[in-house]
Design a protein around this nucleic acid. Structure first.
Lengths: 120, 120
DNA sequence: GCGATGGTATGACGGATGTCCAACTGTAGG
DNA sequence: CCTACAGTTGGACATCCGTCATACCATCGC
């Protein structure tokens, strides 16, 4: 079954809602924030230790790719992922910046008790 | 009964994922973009003509309020909604700006909806 | 060739989400 | 007082989403 969905979409076909939906998940937001350093990161579970299954990570990476956020490069048996920064910045100015600005997370330190509000 | 969830949350308790999830919907994104003019808008279906039921609009407005994005003011028999711009800008610098920046929508963009509900 | 490793495909499952409908509350007007 | 209007509430329903588990494919090293 030809999986055409698998291909990385043209940035012009990506809507803001597509991007927001992809990023509206704790795991995927973290991935994007990490990827924002501009470097390529492997998909290996070693670097992405979320305590999730391999297949679940594959799922998240696919969502990000289909939403036009990332680009996957296959190098032998290992795959690497990187943000489509330039295209994204051109299409949605300031979005990636806003997403990766850590100012929005005061709980970065131990200032506030994290487990207080039991995320729905 | 007294749904505590109904109250507008303290901006410090709002996470970026909360905001993104609220905004990762075509209807709610449009609402936020419209609200971004800084003025208060009524909840009346007259101005928000999405072809949705009243109760569905109530649902979306509640999501936005619970996510800390909006503030609701009751004036007699009509309710008005406004963006919590200042607080949002302080907590998530550049986010609202990025969300409301229209890139000119090159190809297709929002034209992708044939008015079908199609979505969940 | 063969086993180990990195990643994908497929299917199942519980929970969340968007939508509608009908009934309800409360305010404004005559 | 009684009707019209603005919105909310609660339930029903179909779909979607995140997670896991197992099986599968491709590449590297020997």
């Amino acid at each position: 079954m030809g999986r055409e969905d698998d291909a990385m979409p043209d940035i012009a076909d990506v809507t803001m809602v597509d991007v927001l939906r992809a990023v509206a998940d704790p795991i995927r937001l973290r991935i994007v924030q990490t990827l924002a350093d501009g470097m390529a990161h492997g998909k290996c579970g070693t670097h992405w230790d979320f305590g999730l299954h391999k297949s679940t990570m594959t799922h998240h990476f696919r969502i990000l790719r289909q939403a036009g956020l990332t680009r996957t490069v296959v190098a032998g048996r290992t795959h690497t992922v990187e943000l489509r920064r330039d295209e994204l910045d051109a299409r949605f100015p300031g979005l990636i910046d806003a997403l990766t600005t850590t100012t929005g997370v005061p709980s970065g330190g131990t200032a506030r008790t994290p487990a207080s509000r039991s995320g729905r």
